[in-house]
């Protein structure tokens, strides 16, 4: 997987989580995922289309998600406030992925991002020859947060776009 596509997601997660939680975070794990994706807790998925295609899953243990929601909402949120916890995870996914997408677009990669969707499936597809999945684990003061990034770069579309632009 191209690291220039991945680095913006790491930087964005670092910046957004640190600001949201008002505490530093660290990267605990960075590895290729060759197995089918298995959901760990409360998860949101964002799809990308264009020169870069694929999906990013933002996945948080339930306990951590409850703490994140409480910090973001500024009130005590419990596990029974399912909608609020899901909303918090989706909004954090939106902010982290949106900021990374901004960096990549400004670097010349052109693609579109779909709104985050709450992920209910326990399991997803395996990585393939042209779409590798990378798992990133972050440690925060509220617990562990994971991102599973599976992207494919369409060189042909970039060349076509450059040709049209002249």
């Amino acid at each position: 997987m191209r690291m220039d596509l991945i680095q913006p997601f790491i930087n964005s997660a670092d910046a957004v989580l640190a600001q949201a939680l008002q505490s530093p975070i660290s990267i605990e794990n960075l590895s290729m995922d060759e197995e089918a994706y298995r959901r760990k807790g409360v998860a949101a998925e964002v799809g990308l289309t264009g020169e870069i295609e694929g999906r990013i899953i933002f996945d948080v243990d339930l306990g951590t998600a409850v703490q994140l929601a409480s910090r973001l909402a500024g009130i005590a949120v419990s596990e029974t406030d399912e909608d609020l916890v899901r909303e918090a995870v989706c909004e954090l996914a939106n902010q982290i992925i949106g900021n990374a997408v901004t960096t990549l677009n400004d670097q010349g990669f052109h693609f579109h991002v779909r709104p985050p969707a709450f992920l209910t499936a326990e399991q997803g597809s395996k990585s393939s020859e042209d779409t590798e999945a990378l798992v990133m684990g972050f440690r925060t003061a509220s617990g562990n947060v994971f991102m599973n990034v599976a992207l494919r770069y369409h060189r042909r579309r970039a060349v076509e776009r450059a040709a049209v632009a002249g």
Partner: peptide, 9 residues
Amino acid sequence: VSSVGYQEN
């Protein structure tokens, strides 16, 4: 107000 703030947008 958006997280997607690239120049074109």
